[in-house]
Design a protein around this nucleic acid. Sequence first.
DNA 1: AGCAAAATCACCCGAAAGTATGAAGACAAA
DNA 2: TTTGTCTTCATACTTTCGGGTGATTTTGCT
Lengths: 139, 139
Amino acid sequence: MALVLFLLQWLEAHFIVFNYRLDFFIGSIAIVFTVLGIWLALKLVKPKVETRIIEKEIYIESTPPTAINQTEIANLGISKRELDVLQLMATGLSNEEIAEQLFISLNTVKTHSSNIFLKLEVKRRTQAVEKAKRLNIIN
Amino acid sequence: MALVLFLLQWLEAHFIVFNYRLDFFIGSIAIVFTVLGIWLALKLVKPKVETRIIEKEIYIESTPPTAINQTEIANLGISKRELDVLQLMATGLSNEEIAEQLFISLNTVKTHSSNIFLKLEVKRRTQAVEKAKRLNIIN
DNA sequence: AGCAAAATCACCCGAAAGTATGAAGACAAA
DNA sequence: TTTGTCTTCATACTTTCGGGTGATTTTGCT
């Protein structure tokens, strides 16, 4: 602002020189301040950012020698007992049968399977088994 | 530009009125064109494009080229439609969702799955999927 | 055309699965 | 010791599955 005021003073002081060329003078003012405006805008306004999201498809071959993916299990936060249930689930056993196998109650199996579904982000046991096999959580 | 020139003409035509207030006049010009500059900058500057690449993992069924066992399907007497249901069942869909996929009613899906269980000699859908995959009826 | 298998759908009912919530003991880590 | 996770179990409720039965329509084949 101080700079601008000084500039105005200077321009006025030299006005007589340019008096016979008022058009040119005003045009200069206009151009100078247009440039100033542009500069201000560019300098002070946050740059527009247009985010363009590109999904890059990465094909992952599930390891042929079907090694159980311990990392994935840890990532998903699946506990030992939940893994037990998941394993039996994959063989097609009912919750009741799983309970008998593991010597725990039906309710406990239900709790475990609910937690499994949450962690695997699925809705049904069939999906859980499908995803678990795909991720090599079970074999 | 034409607009700007016209504006200048108009301003000059009214110059006498503002003559005794040159400071004010110049200041006005300055402000107007500063604003014009700002507007131009905001309007014309291309937004920065920020490209964000998101890696989307796609898992590939790396199961060896196990050919689907048509003989087994025939032996078990599984029909085309039943195979359709079985296939969708293996992806973890509910009967309701299968019905939507195949444009048939829920009851029909139930009938098909019941028949599948009979022919595969299993009690549950999870077992059906497990056995079907084992027999290479589906992939 | 006529028959048989396949496909479609409906209704009922019980079983199984799944959700929500709460709670208590075990055990390891902070 | 406290904190947090895991495991266990329960109760109540909703949803989905599966079995049984019967019926109509389509379709393929002779």
